[in-house]
Every structure is written in C-alpha cells, then in structure tokens.
Design a protein around this nucleic acid. Structure first.
Lengths: 366, 366
DNA sequence: TGGCCCGATGAATCAGAGC
DNA sequence: CGCTCTGATTCATCGGGCC
C-alpha cells in the first residue's frame, strides 16, 4: 500500500500509508509545505468521574482510554500547541485544516489555532440526528460536536468547492450546521471480539462533506489522529491521497484492512449524507417562546371550553395540566387528541386554529 | 422603574434598572454573591476587512461599531478575563452564566471561562432558521451562533428546569441545538430614523428558553452588555428581576422605553412543569405505620418473586433484609433500584404498585 | 418473507438529602 | 466534609428472535 512521491524538497512524502508513533514526531519527519488538507480528531480531554447508568440500569461504556487523559488544561494546551505547530509546518501555503471537538476541548483548540496564525474560515456544527440522551436529566442532550475550518494564514487561497456542496444540499447554499447520524450499524467497525474497534469512530458522511468541500482529486490529506482510518477510507473513495498517523497498533491494523477493502469512487456507504429529512417537528412550546402566543392567554375548543397557556408550553384546563394533546384528550374523554387542530386562539374577534401558527413556522424553516 | 433591595451585605442591589458606564466598573460596584444568572452578549471582535456587498451591489450593513474594535487577540483576551472575573464575583455560589458569541470570539471566551474557574455545563448552538447568506460563495453560510452555559464552579448546584424544557420541546428532552429565527419584523427595534436601533439584537425566543430553563421566578438576572434590553424585557415578562449595564445612552433609551411597555405574565402562567424530585419524600415505613400495608404481607415484583414486609418498613427476601430499594437491587443484581415502582401488593386479586399508596399520602399532605 | 417486539448502545465532564 | 441511603432518569436506531 505504500507509495512514495517527491515533494518540492528532498524528502519523500509517504502517501497512502499509516505511520506509527507519536503524531508530532511523525509530522516533523515529513517535508514542509507538502500537504493540502489536515483533518484532525484529537483527544477531547473528557473529565469523567464515576460510572453512569441508563435508567434501565445498564452501564454506559465510557471513553476512559489512556490517550484521553491529561492532568490539566495547561498540559492539554501544551499538547495542542505542539501538534498544531507541527501540522502548520506541513501545510502548503494555501492548505487548510479541520479540527473536531466538543465543549471540553474545542475552545482550547480554537484559541490555539488563532494564536498559531491559522485563520478561521467557519466553525461548522455537526448536529447528530441520534445522539445519546442525557440520562439523568441534568443538562441538555449533548447533541452536537463542533468542527473548526481554518486556512494556514489570513489571505490564503484555500479550496472551497461551493457548487459541489450546493449540489449536495439540494441546490441550496451549504450552511454551517450539518445534520448527520452518528456512526453505527454496519459502518461501525468491530474488533475480533465483536466489540467496537474504536470508541469514537466518526461517520464517513462527515468526512465526505469535508473532503468534497475543501479538496480536489489528487490532493494529499493528512490525519494525525487516524484511529480506524475514516479519513483515509473516504479520501481513497474520493480519489484523494492520504497519510495517517496512529500510535495504537490495534487501530492501525483495523484501518489497514478497512482501507484495503475499499475501491475508489465506491460511494454506497455515503448515501446517508444526502438523505432527505422528514418534515420538521414543531413543538407547541415554540409558539410561546416566539411570542406568537402569550403565557396566560386562553385557547378555546369548538365547544367554547378554554385552557390557559403556560410559559413552558403546557396548558391548564378542566383541572388538568399537560400538553395541548393531553388536555384536549381529557376534555373530550378521548384516548388521544390532535391538539394542533383542536385548539384555537382569538385575534381581532376571530377564532383561529393554532395550526396556522405552526404552518407559519414551517414556512420559515422550509 | 428603579427598585432597590437589600442584599445580604450592606450594599443595595439596583434591580430592574439600567446602569450606565463601563460594565466592569459597574459590576465591581455591586455586592458579591448577589446574582442568580448572568446573560452576556459581549463584543464579537469581528475583523471585517473593507465593505461587504451583495450580488446586486447593495452594501451589507456590517457590525463595525467602535465598541467592537480590538487591536489584537491579547487585548480581547484581557478584556474578556476582566469582565468574566467581575461577573464571577457577583454570582451566587449556585448561580450560572450564559455567554453568546461566534467563531470570531467564542473560543477566546470559552477558554477564559474555563481558566477563570467556571465549569462548562453545555455549549448550545443557536441554529438560525433564516440567516444571512454568504454572498460571495467563499465559505459556508454562517448559520449559527454558539452559547456557553457554565456554573460558577465545578460541583455547584445550578438551576435546570428539565421538565419545563422538555414540555417546551413537546415531551422530548431539550437538545443542545436550538432552531430559532433571527430577530426581525416587528420585534426588531428601530431608532428615530427608522434604522435598526442595535446591530445585533437577539430574539426574545432565545432568552425565553434560557430564562425558563435556568432560573426561577423572582431570580435576579444581570446582563452586562445590555444593548436594547432583550434580557430585561424577557426577564420582566417571565417574572424575574433584572439588572442591565450599557455604555451607550442611545441603547439605554431604547431599552428603557421597550421594557416600560412590557407587562409581566400572571403568576399561574409562569408556573412550569416540575420534576418528581421536587415532590415531598415519603418513607416507605409510613405505609406500614398507617396500616396501608400489614407487617407480614408479601410484596411481588413483575417476575413473581416476593419479599415480606416487616414492622419497621424493611423487607426480607432472597436472603436479604433492607429497604425496598436494597432488596430490589439485590434481586435484580443491579447497582440501584427504585423500590417504589419495582414492588407491588395484591388487593382483591389485582396487583398494584406500591407507588399508588405513596401518591395517596402525598395527596393528603399537599 | 414479513412484521412485531425486545435488547443493546452511542465522545457524558449526569444527585441530593440527611446525619 | 464525608459517609450513607433514597430513588429519579432516555432517544434513535439497529439487529436478532419469534410468530
């Protein structure tokens, strides 16, 4: 699988190869100004305390691997500065970098990028369509991760395939928020025991969008935290060259086998990246938040019975508190009720179904 | 509009007032540990080079006000550290802060928050349903902003109205990505010339969700970059007290007029759904004391296993003696168990969860 | 073969009161 | 502060087994 090409300088660039060892040392062994794109999924520095159980008492498989352990923010910052510096040396002047992270580390990474002279082009939010819930109800569902896209320096002529991304997005300009499912099912790589081969494998759809949008065929893409090689797999499919760096032999082994099995331009696994979303669900509470209905306002049904809107989007009526559907069902003595068509509000003497307001929101969202 | 209350210390807290002047000095004049929530929309440190024009050659009205100019990252970081420090002094130990920003500044802010000892709880993405397109087609549509929600320190007992937010989201737990429209139309405040009064006015819907989710009625909310007072307006509507700090008289004037025109929602509309955790605790032994269950009576789980009730409110089953929770956990081999939903008793041939008896007691208590 | 039900699981900084 | 005990808490998806 190893192929060597000559870079501008004297040193060879080991394209389509997985390098072993520490990523900073490995990067420093490569020629400067030789790489078109870097995609990096560094350790997130999660600081997990005790165990976490689901409500059904099953235990959550935590990311507690040794490679994610740092003693302090200072240690993490130092590590981040070092690998970002080594990475920047490798980038061609018009090259770019993507880094993915969560709130645990992404603010450190973003600051370090700016301090190192990179120029941030966008932050892009990966909105997970199926994230793990917050089991204890103590915070918001952690439903996204953040990617930072930056050029090597201000004013660089980075690659951006605007029309290709627009086509991927059904003819509409690609936005900075991408809705994509997490990596599971058949795409999730298993080890010989049938367990997941890597705790944080990224979906190919995410890399597909990154690579289509910010490289051209024949470009060289480096991933210094290669893991099980999603970057290399998608790069190969899309006719780009790649270099991976990975410390753990177990990950390298899985990645090698995976990439060897891929033929270029075999995009069957990527169909999910263009799949259409279902019609957006509009929570009734959003009508209250947006001021379309006031807390305290009365809704009425066709029989003239009424219920009061509360600040959290629940209704109070007939001695019951609950959703528009629940209170409607109670009033009707029915097992269920479509609150959207059941309830009405008054404006200028007229009685209007609340579904009209939902239609307005959907029209804006289109 | 000015109201003064006495804080714990000697200094008065000027609630429901807009303070003028520099936000750091103003914050330092207020008593420490006196504020429940801080919402901050600091300058974004935008670095716009030259004017931006739409495809039809019309000029985009950029954010280039003098208050948004910083000469370097170092100057911006210094400013950020200073106001975050002053803000942290004001927060009650169990208080929290929200800061909103874009990729230009949010990584600096996030790092500074962590360095100052705040503890990040979530980052929340405001996904704009109608953002300004990227006119030049050189980047992704900048379609979101990022908010960071943090407690004053690790382990603090921050306020999170989980059930209210879940109700707002039609019964599904609230995620870290919020889809809300930008502020325009009638909500957008105009100055006397009919131009927009403030370049970055935030939508009320955003503040509604923040305030419902992380404060209780009667709490004090401080906004050190008050602008045209969205925070104060929504706080007043929702029955919270507020303090604004704003340097520009023109913004203060618009904000004062705006907030004076608002009336608060009535008390029952402000009540939100609460968690079971808030309900009074009922010892299982009380069911025995009150004769709702007899000592010697057998309880059963859904698998038909049984345990005997003792006079002191403990159970004996499977060779174990202990609380309803302990014996249930032992039978399931689980780390914990909610005995109230796990155990059932028999009456007239029917199997009834013991939680029904707890509900009876709670109904009598209310 | 199809439909339904059940179990498993995913980058997670996930409790609070009482003594 | 530390220890003990109570008891609250989940969404989307995939795959396997069963009828």
């Amino acid at each position: 699988m190893t192929t060597m090409t000559r870079a501008k300088g004297a040193t060879a660039l080991p394209i389509n190869t997985i390098l072993s060892g520490d990523c900073i040392e490995a990067m420093n062994s490569l020629p400067e100004n030789s790489v078109d794109l870097i995609f990096a999924d560094p350790p997130y520095n999660l600081q997990l305390k005790g165990d976490l159980h689901r409500p059904d008492n099953s235990k959550v498989d935590a990311v507690d691997d040794h490679w994610d352990q740092f003693n302090s923010f200072a240690a993490y910052d130092s590590f981040t500065r070092d690998w970002l510096k080594a990475a920047r040396r490798l980038l061609k002047p018009d090259g770019a970098i993507w880094v993915i992270g969560s709130y645990h580390n992404i603010f450190r990474v973003g600051s370090a990028l700016q301090d190192a002279g990179y120029w941030i082009l966008n932050d892009v939010v990966w909105r997970k369509s199926n994230p793990m819930p917050n089991f204890r109800g103590k915070r918001f569902t952690n439903a996204h991760e953040t990617m930072i896209w930056a050029s090597k320096s201000e004013g660089a002529k980075y690659t951006f395939n605007y029309e290709a991304l627009k086509a991927l997005n059904e003819g509409v300009q690609m936005r900075s928020d991408w809705v994509l499912p997490i990596c599971n099912g058949g795409e999730r790589l298993k080890d010989d025991n049938g367990d997941k081969a890597h705790p944080t494998q990224k979906p190919q759809s995410l890399l597909h969008r990154v690579i289509v949008g910010s490289t051209n065929p024949g470009d060289v893409i480096l991933d210094p935290f290669f893991g099980t090689g999603t970057t290399g797999a998608v790069a190969k499919m899309l006719g780009r060259d790649w270099i991976g760096i990975e410390r753990e032999e177990s990950y390298r082994k899985v990645a090698r086998r995976r990439i060897d099995d891929i033929r270029a331009f075999d995009g069957t696994a990527l169909q999910v990246s263009t799949s259409k979303r279902a019609e957006p669900r509009v929570p009734f509470g959003q009508l209250v938040e947006r001021g379309m209905l006031r807390p305290g306002e009365m809704l009425v049904n066709t029989r003239g019975q009424s219920a009061k809107v509360r600040a959290d989007g629940t209704l109070v009526g007939d001695g019951v508190t609950g959703s528009i559907h629940q209170v409607g069902a109670k009033l009707e003595g029915a097992p269920s009720c479509n609150g959207w068509t059941y309830w009405h509000f008054k404006r200028e003497g007229k009685v209007v179904p609340i579904d009209v307001l939902r239609q307005q929101i959907r029209a804006e969202m289109q």
